[in-house]
Amino acid sequence: MEVPEDVKRRLTLPFEENFFAGHTACQGCGASLGLRYVLKAYGRKTILVIPACCSTIIAGPWPYSALNANLFHTAFETTGAVISGIEAALKALGYKVKGEDGIMVVGWAGDGGTADIGLQALSGFLERGHDALYIMYDNEAYMNTGIQRSSSTPYGAWTTNTPGGKRHFLEKRHKKKVIDIVIAHRIPYAATASVAYPEDFLRKLKKAQKIPGPSFIQLFAPCPTGWRAPTDKTIEIARLAVQTAYFPLFEYENGKYKINMPNPKKEPKPIEEFLKLQGRFKYMTKEDIEVLQKWVLEEWERLKKLAEVFG
């Protein structure tokens, strides 16, 4: 399709498309949007590593691929290690990795594959300092296996192994702060991002490319199927996650924190606004919501202090 130059100039995202129709994501899938933005940012000179997760399926079965980039499918817990090996081999073979016009090696793993089973390989990758990017697309449960809780599932959520029921057996642990574990490695660049704010995400992807060393982005990616939410509410839910400070947008760059909230002066909206659009939270009692609200605001205060002290 020919697009006039003046239209192209007004676009806030690259026009180039490297993630094609025919992929097999569910309607309203946040992860597939994220994957599309990653390929918009980096183009074909990208090597993607995808462990067991929804994206294994989304990319398409053999002999198809919805991605116009090289893709290596790997085992659940190995993303950090495989991108390390690819980066080392590229260097051994004399290729330019990262930076302007360098090859981007991108690990694209879900929250289970990152926060749980892949945490060790992630830590190894970060600690050794490879020139690659690890993106955790966070849909807050094991969605590909059918919605089981991960350590990134929030307090009060229904999943198929925290099903509520008579004994109110819901997720009773708060979401693991994977980004804090990542920052503990003191890598040059780590950030949170959301599919509701693609310009912010693209800017962060570009930064991750420019800054040498390992980078990490935790991308909030709603899953209408697993969150029991309408498929046309993905962006709205993702936006509310930011506006309630449930999932604040921020960057950690060379030791400095910077909060990237769309309206920095605004007080966070009540957490109910985020919860009420999603069936997964419908079993929460008033007390449950208070527990979650308290945690969200405490974490938000903590982040603001970090940005104040290390800003």
């Binding site: 790997t74 190995t78 260097k91 390989a121 050794r128």
Partner: peptide, 28 residues
């Protein structure tokens, strides 16, 4: 020797890193 040497954090990751490197075309 001119070798990219990855001191991994486990044998599982050793083989995973070898797999990534070999798939990129290196002798591993």
């Amino acid at each position: 020797a001119d070798i990219q040497y990855i001191p991994v954090e486990s044998e599982h990751s050793a083989m995973a890193a070898c797999i990534g490197a070999s798939a990129t075309g290196a002798r591993v």
